[in-house]
Structures are given as structure tokens and as C-alpha cells.
């Protein structure tokens, strides 16, 4: 009993620390990568190769003034960034990073919670991410913020539908909602080969879900200054920032689990393979950001409802037919 609790706590702590570190170094990674794509050098002054830059950034954010705009709703204004960070961390508890192994006579699983209907829990939690956008935009008493949060809400709700539908076709094929089970089902062949359309839809939707370019409308800099987090500074902004990067990791992890065989790969290097796939995905996210202009809000909605959703439904029906027959 006690040993179980210790195990979960240890795994949870490790996860939070690793993820925070990942998010911090993703910012550095993104800055350097984008700089190299843009004829620049990027941060390279703080420490060797600029490696201490994230720490410097973090220290700067921590020591900034605690600022709150006039007319802001105090409770929700302070709550919103916490919600954002909490949800981003929480959903990671279900992702399997590798197979179970023996450690001091105990069988250790490389995930925190083994929920039967794991994917439903993840979807439920990512849906909750709308709340931090809404509350942040509404509570900061700024019109740019509220415009950003309205956009964000509409966008995230709309794109959850094709996202869910694309996952559903994989669930049909795997026959389970349990994430380790889905990885198990890809032992022979990854689902990306059998469900390419679902994979493409999932990737497009994941850009919209994480508010990344070219769908970064809720925080579109040249229209809404910074969107829903215009009025946030210091560590509060830092939490939004961290949540954004952890969300990128999360959707990448889900994509890997569902379509790219999870931790599977040649040789017996499960966690390494998982990390490598994750890195490729994250690189893709950054590459797209450096390449594409931003779409317009109404075009985004049209694309989601009139193109992606019908395709996702058709794809689901075809998959269901093949699974059934």
C-alpha cells in the first residue's frame, strides 16, 4: 500500500520535473531552430551554446513585479494560469512511455495511471483547457483579451470534434480505450499505415488545439497584441507559456501513442524511441511556425466545420465498415 503511494509520488514528481525541464529547453530549442531558419543565430550568450538561457528566463519571470490590471477579477485572474499549467501536467499521467520492467523485485510501469478508458480521460482533460483561455481573457478586463479568448474557445471546441473522430477510428481498430492496450495493438503495424487520413486530421487539429501557428489566432500578435494573455506578466505569463509547450508535448505524445507505435521501435530502447519520436514531432511544430502565415478566424472555422469534420466522419464510417467486415 505505502510502497504503491511512494511509487506513484516518485513517478509523478519525476514527470513534473522532466516536463518542466523539457518545456524550458523547448523554448531554447525553438528559439535557436527558428533563428537558424531565419538567418539569425538565436540565444548563444548565456552559458555554453546558450544552454543556461531558459534558467535566466525563468529567474527573470519569477522576479518580475506582481501586476494586476485595474478592474480585473482577482480570483479568476490568478486562477487561470494555474488551471492552464495543471491541466497540461495532469493529462500526461496516462501516457505510456515504455514497457514495464523489474526494479528491486517490483514491476514498474512507465505510466502513472492505467485507466481503462484512458483516451476518454485525456480528451476530457484537454477539453478543460478551454477554461483557462476563457477565464484569462474574461478576467483581465481588456478587449483584446476577450477577443482572443472568444476565438480560442470557438477554435478549441470546434477542432475537438474532428480530433475526437480521428482518434475514434484508431480506437475502433485497436478495440480498446486503454493507452497501453493501443500501443500493444500496434506491435505488428503502426496505425499511421492503416489510418493515414486520421493521422493527418489529428495533426492538423493538434495545431489548432495547442494554438500554434498557423492557427495561433487566440494570441495572434499582429491582431490582438497577445490575445488572452495580453495582461499577464511574470510567472503568470510563464505558466501560460509553459502550458503551451507542455501541450505541444502532450499532443505529440498522443499522436505517437495512437499512430506511431508509442515506445516501439527497432532494438530494445523503448524510452529512447519515445523521446526520439517526440523530438521529431516537436521539430515539426517549430518548422511549421517558421514557415506559414496565419489563417483568418472565419476561414479557420470554415475549414474545421466544413472540411475537416466531414472528412473525419467519412473516415470513421469507412474504418468501421472494415473493422466490422
Amino acid at each position: 500500500m505505502w510502497i504503491d503511494i511512494i511509487e506513484v509520488l516518485a513517478k509523478g514528481l519525476t514527470l513534473v520535473l522532466v516536463l518542466s525541464g523539457c518545456a524550458a529547453y523547448m523554448t531554447l530549442c525553438e528559439r535557436v531552430l527558428m533563428a537558424r531558419m531565419q538567418l539569425r543565430l538565436g540565444p548563444n550568450r548565456t552559458g555554453p551554446f546558450g544552454l543556461f538561457q531558459p534558467m535566466a528566463d525563468g529567474i527573470k519571470l519569477i522576479f518580475k513585479e506582481r501586476f494586476q490590471p485595474a478592474g480585473a477579477d482577482t480570483l479568476t485572474y490568478w486562477l487561470a494560469p494555474a488551471i492552464a499549467a495543471f491541466i497540461a501536467f495532469f493529462a500526461f499521467g496516462l501516457i505510456p512511455f515504455g514497457p514495464s520492467f523489474e526494479f528491486m523485485g517490483r514491476e514498474i510501469n512507465l505510466y502513472i495511471a492505467d485507466v481503462n478508458s484512458g483516451i476518454l480521460v485525456i480528451l476530457a482533460f484537454t477539453s478543460l483547457a478551454v477554461y483557462d483561455v476563457v477565464l484569462a481573457g474574461w478576467s483581465s478586463n481588456n478587449r483584446y483579451s476577450i477577443l482572443g479568448s472568444i476565438r480560442g474557445t470557438a477554435q478549441m471546441i470546434s477542432y475537438e470534434i474532428p480530433l475526437g473522430l480521428s482518434i475514434l477510428s484508431v480506437v475502433l481498430a485497436a478495440g480498446t480505450l486503454n493507452l497501453p492496450g493501443i500501443v500493444e495493438a500496434q506491435a505488428e503495424r503502426w496505425f499511421i499505415w492503416t489510418h493515414p487520413i486520421a493521422f493527418i486530421i489529428f495533426v492538423i487539429c493538434s495545431f489548432a488545439e495547442t494554438n500554434r501557428a498557423p492557427f495561433d489566432l487566440p494570441e495572434a500578435e499582429h491582431e490582438l497584441v497577445a490575445g488572452y494573455h495580453t495582461e499577464y506578466g511574470g510567472l503568470k505569463f510563464g505558466m501560460f507559456f509553459m502550458a503551451e509547450y507542455i501541450n505541444i508535448l502532450l499532443v505529440s505524445a498522443i499522436a505517437i501513442t495512437f499512430f506511431l507505435g508509442g515506445w516501439r521501435g527497432p532494438g530494445d530502447l523503448p524510452v529512447v524511441w519515445f523521446a526520439a519520436k517526440l523530438a521529431v514531432f516537436v521539430f515539426f511544430f517549430m518548422w511549421v511556425r517558421a514557415t506559414l502565415p496565419r489563417v483568418r478566424y472565419d476561414q479557420l472555422m470554415t475549414f474545421g466545420w466544413k472540411i475537416l469534420t466531414p472528412i473525419a466522419i467519412a473516415n470513421l464510417i469507412v474504418t468501421a465498415y472494415f473493422v466490422l467486415v
Binding site: M34, Q38, L39, A213, A220, H222, T291, L292
Partner: peptide, 16 residues
């Protein structure tokens, strides 16, 4: 112009 449309990269190329 492209920066306003959300594409950040062309800005630095044209500046070069």
C-alpha cells in the same frame, strides 16, 4: 506585410 499576416520568417530574409 507578411509579418502582419503572421509569417515571421520572410521579415528577416527581406531585411538581409
Amino acid at each position: 506585410f507578411l509579418l502582419d499576416l503572421g509569417a515571421f520568417t520572410p521579415f528577416l530574409y527581406t531585411f538581409a
